[in-house]
Every structure is written in structure tokens, then in C-alpha cells.
Design a protein around this nucleic acid. Structure first.
Lengths: 138, 138
DNA sequence: ATCCTACAATAGACTTTGTCTAAGTCAAGG
DNA sequence: CCTTGACTTAGACAAAGTCTATTGTAGGAT
């Protein structure tokens, strides 16, 4: 993720303080912030950044394939900067904590033709649910 | 689903015209309506039913385990009356059509301990994505 | 059959999440 | 350093969902 800014510049992105801040906020592993959380953290670094800019920038990052949209809870979308290795998610049913996980196996092969209804199936998204150690001990 | 009303009565549910209508609207296979769609169809059968009642009733049905909430697109939640056989979903990326599917294999077993981060994992939800025959031919 | 009462339904205000627009600002090439 | 088109802004708007105070009613008690 540290070279994200470089890659974006290379793609002809016009670099602005706002975009830099949004990219910085999204840096890290197991980061899955909502747009509002991204905005809150961005404001802490750059008080005059607007909500619309955060939404625009997140949308652009998603279009460029640099960030993934995930919706593990049924509320707001979350943004996942770990777009370069495919992965799935493990979510705590109680506190909502999210971890990136890499199951073995090939779930696409597990869908028989008779269950495809003529669709051309290209992808599968898996959300494991459970209780995290923190909530289990509480 | 036809005996849903019976089961609910057995659970001490107070039966009202509104609840009956919501349950009727949800009847069927491969039914995945949004709350608003449920409301629209309910209004057709019982014009004075309110939006809040539809939301309340859907929420109660979900709590009772009679209906599942699914969020295949990132917009509104959808309600799936097929709560008695576990299943996953296949979604058309273009038109949003949804089918219930039953993959083989045991995805829970495909998540190694090293990828569980101490969670007690109890469930997995899979969303296959692709293009339906209709959209493919268009 | 009628009455009571707790539970259910209603309208509409409110909240959250996200999108759009018109006008001002600024990065980067010339 | 000027220009220009892309970027940002504030705030209005929209969609999805929740909450509240009030009114209505299902179903047991009488």
C-alpha cells in the first residue's frame, strides 16, 4: 500500500492533499473502514476536507481496483485496501471486527452445473461469521 | 412456507391482517424482495398498511428465523423466505437477478486454524457472481 | 357476547448513508 | 507565473431505515 501514491501518479492521477490523506488513512492490514470513518480520520489530518471528496476519492480508488468495497454488516459499505491478494472475510457477529482470511479449496468448482441456472459464474465472495476471542471472553 | 402462519400462531404470535399480508407476499421460491418491494406488494392487498409495520414485521420474522436477511447488492437489504434449507446465492452482476444455490463441499472445513484468529467460526455465507442467460444474450 | 388490556399499527419526524450540483480553488504543463 | 480543466467544497437532496407518541385491535377474561 505504501506505493499506492506512486501507482496513482503513474496512472495520471492529479495529486492533491485530500487524496493523499484518504490514501494514508486506508493504509494497513485488516483495515475495513466505513466512508464515515475514513472521513473522520481524514478530517483529523486535514480539517477542511469535505465528505463529498472522501466519497469521490473512495469511488475512484475502487474503480482503479486499488481498494475493494465490502459489505459485511448490513449497514454502511466498508473499504478494504488489500485489493492485491484475493481474500475473504471473517466477521465477529457481536462486535463487528473483521479479519482478512484465505480459505483453501476452490468454491467455484463446488457449484455444479445444475445449480448455475445458465449463468456464467465468474466470482465468489465468502463471509465467515463467528465470535472473536475478545467477545468470547467477555 | 404455506404453513408459516400456523407456525407463527403456535409461537404465540398475535395474528393481524397486516402480518398475514406480509407473510403472503414473501411466499415462494427464489423470492428476494427489498423492504420497499414488500411494502408495495402489501399495500396492493391492504392499502392502509404502513411502512413501519412492514419493517417491524420483517424484523420479527428474521428474529424468529422464518426469513433471512441477505444483502447481495450494496443497497437495500433483501428478505428471503427460504430459511429452512441452508443455501447460498447466485447474483447477476448486470440485472441483479438472484437464485438460491446449493454448492457441494464444506467451506467451513476450508478455513485452516491459522486463518481463524482465535474466532469461534459458526457459519459462512457465499455469494456467487456472474451474468445470467438473459443479460448474456442481450 | 362484551369488555379489557397488552400488544400491534399508524403517521410522520428523524437518522444514517450516500449522491448531486453550482461555484470556487488549485496542480501541473506551457 | 498563467491558464485551464480537473478537483474540492458546502449544502441540498435522496434512499433506506428507525423511533415515538398516539390510536386501534386480537384474544383472553368475564
Amino acid at each position: 500500500m505504501s506505493d499506492l501514491l506512486e501507482r496513482l501518479r503513474g496512472r495520471g492521477w492529479r495529486m492533491t492533499a485530500q487524496r493523499r490523506v484518504v490514501a494514508e488513512v486506508l493504509d494497513g492490514d485488516h483495515v475495513h473502514l466505513t466512508a464515515d470513518e475514513v472521513h473522520a480520520r481524514a478530517v483529523a489530518k486535514l480539517p477542511e476536507i469535505s465528505r463529498a471528496t472522501v466519497y469521490n476519492t473512495l469511488g475512484e480508488l475502487v474503480s482503479l481496483g486499488e481498494v475493494l468495497e465490502v459489505s459485511t454488516d448490513k449497514r454502511a459499505k466498508r473499504y478494504d485496501p488489500n485489493a492485491h491478494r484475493p481474500h475473504h472475510h471473517l466477521v465477529c457477529a457481536q462486535c463487528g471486527a473483521i479479519r482478512d482470511v484465505h480459505p483453501t479449496g476452490n468454491p467455484l468448482a463446488d457449484l455444479p452445473d445444475s445449480e448455475r441456472f445458465g449463468f456464467t459464474v465468474s466470482d465468489v465472495e465468502m463471509t465467515y461469521r463467528g465470535v472473536c476471542p475478545n467477545c468470547a471472553s467477555a
